[in-house]
Amino acid sequence: MNIDHEEIFKVENVKKIFNEGEQTQVNAVSDVSFKIKKGEFVAIVGPSGSGKSTLLNLISGLDTPTAGRIFLAGNDLTTLSGNELSDFRRDHIGFIFQAYNLIPVLSVEENIEFVMQLQGISKEVRREKVQSILSDVGLTGMEKRKPSQLSGGQQQRVAVARAIVTRPEIVLADEPTANLDSKTAVALVELMKELNSKYQTTFIFSTHDNTIMERAKRLITLKDGRIESDTIF
């Protein structure tokens, strides 16, 4: 393995074929390679069916590639077992989902400290970090609320807080602004950009949203499962 010190992420000749050998075979991702450095703010774009979500699944260890290797923080994700991948995601990756996906029975505070609890961090430290991140995402005072008591934008801010509170190497977000109005979407992207600058956390998005594309520092465009272009601004 040969990874640059600043290089957080390396995808090598990754391929994903669904229903391999059958008539319905789909080459979702074909021979994709790229590297991402620490602190990058990357948007993966492309039309529907171009392989954005599949690629995000692969690079987050949620799915296994048919071929190729994926390195994150010095680990080859393709060699890890199910539980090792769980632990790896817990310690190195933050997730932001399209539909927020907070745990409805937990309060804002409990949602944000969920991953920290999995990591075994003490209650005092957890609460301290929660207060700090709530201040970062502008939700101070809402820690006891349930997700159902928040607006869509507020829920997505909680999701951002949950993703970043443990300071993971990378945050993966699939269409994070898809369910938000344009004003809220802009505010959210600005927030993520701010956090990206403040904590040097790498953000990778899959998106159709111009708001994100315009603010991304790098744009990887996919077409038919292949990288069509990779532009750094």
Partner: peptide, 8 residues
Amino acid sequence: VLRSLGTR
């Protein structure tokens, strides 16, 4: 989602 966040 729970499994993605690192739940074993």
